[in-house]
């Protein structure tokens, strides 16, 4: 069975592309792209990198369909969970992720003469 085999050329081209994508992500960040576009571009490049690694390095392209089903469903569930949570945070009022202030005061000791009685 000859499935799941990469040639040396495939490996080298794959990683040349991945290094270029890392540099591209870095350049975009240093160029000062900000806001929602920075997020879209950075996550988009990371997604393309993940796809390249999965297809070529993890040899998904040459694998049987049963493996492909797992490889497609797992990221879909990740996307579903993350996106629905973010939508919930953006749209629900009051926000479910409001952080209460941290109480950093040191509790003062009880006044002398007052002793706690052990409960029976």
């Amino acid at each position: 069975m000859n499935e799941e085999r990469s040639t040396l050329g495939t490996v080298l081209i794959t990683y040349a592309a991945l290094y270029l994508l890392v540099v591209a992500n870095l350049v975009v960040a240093l160029a000062g792209v900000s806001g929602i576009w920075a997020l879209v571009v950075a996550m988009g490049i990371a997604g393309i990198q993940a796809l390249v690694v999965a297809l070529f390095s993890m040899e998904l392209l040459r694998s049987r369909r049963s493996i492909g089903v797992v490889a497609v469903i797992a990221p879909l569930f990740v996307l579903l969970l993350v996106s629905l949570t973010v939508v919930d945070v953006y749209t629900r009022a009051p926000s479910p992720l409001e952080i209460p202030p941290i109480d950093r005061t040191v509790p003062s000791p009880p006044p002398s003469g007052i002793t706690s009685t052990p409960s029976p």
Partner: peptide, 15 residues
């Protein structure tokens, strides 16, 4: 792959 997503989230999205 996990790190390729963590890198922008913790180091790049700073502008």
């Amino acid at each position: 792959i996990v790190w390729l997503f963590l890198w922008p989230l913790f180091y790049l999205l700073r502008n």
